[in-house]
């Protein structure tokens, strides 16, 4: 196994699947000759040519519409949105069209588009280069929403996304692009969509999280251990469809749950998780479910460190559910 960063793993997933499946076509801004602003597509334009690696105009709605048209006719488009923040001009194509094709045509028109987008904060990018839009897409029936936290999952989940019969929003935590390093299986490798991963076993508190917050949870768990508290961490990996049994299992074991994400709190994905936990595990709970999230504000540029959940805030929540 080779040690890779998350961005290298993404690149390997794209290259491998393009090699195996001639229907896979990439499109996006600056992804061709330039290799993408985060270099996710480096070398692919040279290797697979401009027809399969399309440098698009600055036009997100057009990119998504083009991808849908390709997908309806047998191609496997993977659209890159340069930053998840720039997905909103394409929101209509995604929410009104892409998510609804299969449903409204009673199964005649599946549109298996993968949308890759660097998501989240941590690079001092300010309001328009740091947002976490996952809740909008989870809220839209018909979409699969994925967010890896490790290089191996980055590769395996992206390969599965490119084989999924349904559209996938594949959010890549950009803060981890180069900081997450790990062993990645070589050759053909996939990780099933819809399956969570227990990052760390524990008995006292369940932390349920995903993406760039997984390492934060690990930091908090290590600190908690020093206080004699055993934290279990579940990395959801696929937000929707949710591996709700994995959440049940963990919470019913520990009786205490902290949900952790960097997106704003109100109507964030954590709100759905907390509801599911109380609906399904009510009699196991020893404390109310606690949320650690970003603020209910736009992403505040110079106050990024304060906005983003960190080890301290997570640890406070862990202590909070223990002492309830």
């Amino acid at each position: 196994m080779a040690v890779m960063t998350l961005i290298q793993a993404i690149n390997a997933a794209l290259a491998g699947e393009m090699e195996r499946n001639p229907a896979v076509v990439l499109l996006g801004e600056d992804i061709g000759k330039h290799g993408g602003v985060f270099r996710a597509t480096e070398g692919l334009w040279e290797r697979f040519g401009p027809e399969r690696v399309m440098d698009t105009p600055l036009a997100e709605a057009g990119i998504l519409g083009m991808a849908i048209g390709m997908a309806l006719n047998g191609l496997r488009p993977v659209a890159e949105i340069q930053f998840a923040d720039f997905i909103y001009p394409a929101f209509d194509q995604i929410v009104s069209e892409l998510a609804k094709f299969r449903y409204r045509s009673a199964g005649q028109f599946p549109a298996p588009v993968v949308i890759r987008a660097p998501s989240g904060g941590g690079i001092k990018g300010g309001l328009y280069h740091s947002q976490s839009p996952e809740a909008y897409f989870v809220h839209t029936a018909g979409l699969t929403v994925v967010m890896p936290s490790t290089p191996a999952d980055g590769k395996g989940l992206l390969v599965s996304a490119m084989r999924s019969p349904d559209p996938v929003i594949f959010l890549e935590p950009k803060a981890l692009y180069r900081t997450a390093k790990g062993e990645v299986p070589e050759g053909e490798y996939d990780v099933p969509l819809g399956k969570a991963h227990t990052v760390r076993e524990g008995t006292d508190v369940s932390v349920i999280t995903y993406g760039a917050m997984v390492p934060v949870a690990e930091g908090a768990a290590a600190e908690a251990e020093k206080e004699g508290v055993s934290v279990e961490i579940t990395d959801l990996r696929t937000l929707w469809p949710l591996d709700v049994e994995a959440v049940d299992r963990s919470v019913q074991k520990t009786g205490r749950a902290v949900v952790l994400h960097e997106a704003p709190r109100t109507c964030g994905f954590g709100a759905e998780l907390a509801t599911l936990v109380q609906e399904r595990s009510f009699l196991h709970l020893k404390a109310p479910v606690s949320r650690v999230t970003g603020f209910d504000t736009p992403f505040p540029y110079a106050m990024e460190k304060i906005y983003l959940p960190d080890v301290r805030r997570t640890l406070d929540a862990v202590r909070g559910v223990l002492t309830f």
Partner: peptide, 22 residues
């Protein structure tokens, strides 16, 4: 400090703040 670079705008001089949403 809420947003970066030219995003502030200056109402008193009739200057709209730039946005990343080109």
């Amino acid at each position: 400090g809420k947003d970066s670079f030219l995003h502030g705008g200056d109402f008193s001089n009739c200057i709209f703040g730039a946005t990343s949403m080109l």
